[in-house]
Design a protein around this nucleic acid. Sequence first.
RNA 1: GGAGAGGUGGCAGAGUGGUCGAUCGCACCGCACUCGAAAUGCGGCAUGCCUGCAAGGGCAUCGGGGGUUCGAAUCCCCCCCUCUCCGCCA
Length: 495
Amino acid sequence: MFDIKWIRENPTAFDAGLQARGLDPLSAGIIALDEQRRAQLTSLQEAQARRNAASKEIGKAKAQKDEATAAKLMAEVAALKDKLSQGEEAERAFDAKIQAMLEVIPNLPRDDVPRGKDETDNVEVRRVGTPPRMDFKPKQHFELGEALGLMDFESAAKVSGARFVYLKGPLARLERALAQFMLDIHTGDFGYLEVSPPLMVKKDAAYGTGNLPKFADDLFKTSRSPGNYKTFDEEIAVYFREQLGELEAENKRSRDLGQQELSSSSFVREASFEIQMKEAVLRADHRQYVEDEARLYLIPTAEVPLTNLVREQVIDEAKLPMRFTAWTPCFRSEAGAAGRDTRGMIRQHQFSKVEMVSVTTPEQSLEEHERMTSCAEEILKRLGLAFRTMLLCTGDMGFASQKTYDIEVWLPGQDAYREISSCSVCGDFQARRMDARFRSKEGKPQFVHTLNGSGLAVGRTLVAVLENYQQADGSVIIPEALRSYMGGMERIAKA
RNA sequence: GGAGAGGUGGCAGAGUGGUCGAUCGCACCGCACUCGAAAUGCGGCAUGCCUGCAAGGGCAUCGGGGGUUCGAAUCCCCCCCUCUCCGCCA
């Protein structure tokens, strides 16, 4: 989320950043709207100032029993009433309009991010490890898993639909082992605080990290039954009374004119039809409102609850950087991903991930970004998996990011590097949306910087282990580093 | 889910229609006293926004939203949260 003031002062930089993202310039439109808003705000505030002053004088006049003056002033304020309520409404309208424009604008890329259109313009910054040599044709993870009888997509489809899976026996345990292994490293070696967060969050939290309002389609949401209808019933009662009153008035007019009363059957039928239509609309609106307010979202990543841990507060600078890690399931509707990676565990509606989140000062964030990326890389190193680290170009970065490294692990079965982690620095973009600030010894509170990264996607790590450690006979060697987490097991083979 | 109590500045806690953006205390900052510190005394100390070169001026904010009123922290309505008790439950 951008500070309108910053846009006003840096329109060129703002538009240049948008252009790097492949977007059209927006500053002129926003600034024009903001100018209107401020002009209107000033005139509203002048009217309010006059009302406030007059009200104080009324108080004084009444205290002195000067009813004449009081009455005069009250008349003046009464005349201001329309102007005030119109002004307030106009202000709300301007605010909403500008807010709606700002909240869907993505973060601007840092200067050192390569310009580019899509993933083909990403820049490889390093390559670590060598892909294993195999003297047989490597299989894909789902071929291995299904042949072992430990990975069951068919049952999952029956129970939950496409893009779900059952893992069984040693594979289920391997998922748990990987997660524990990752958490132990992040907490033990890198100083992250392990957190077990809520898996459902409110709209405001999803908004804070930038998942809403623009990417609502990517989220699974609960639909809770609307709770209290009292307000609505009252609304309806008022409306009915109005309608009936009008009908009666209409009939009285007709009688006075000596005409036939309109409460003849046809009119009543028409009127009651209209009432029913309006009632239906009101009811629908109200239901929608209540549901939207009560709605919870399944987290698409633990980034959401972890980052929002600092929302709406002022943190003591001495506590920064804060580092959180969590192992959670993640839920994504994958709308618009139809046809991509339909087979196997690469792209699921539900997957397991160990997430890292850092909250820092503006000075610390760039260095923290490198550190976080290396924390993720360390997991792959210890597992003996080959990977490359990519610096994403401007066109391929996520909504909230200023700069992103993707880590791609080598998958022999696919004969390709595939994303297994994504580490982003968001600057104060999320902090503004969450109102998360810190206070230094001297000086006013300012917005924190936030970072997030996968450390790692557990499902995809499991895929990588299977494919990289597969043997000619279809069994899979368990990497040294994981064996203690697997009860000493060295190999997964068909039972 | 039911009943009751409550939500006010960093903390604590007054304020029930008119100079209340808010008394007092604690914490914090500055100054005085002191060799230094403690204690004491004096002064300062909420946030956001608009406007102005600045000094300043103005608007809004007492959990959130709406309403009554010339005027609301204070009255009315709705919602949220916290605490206590009861019920239900992994």
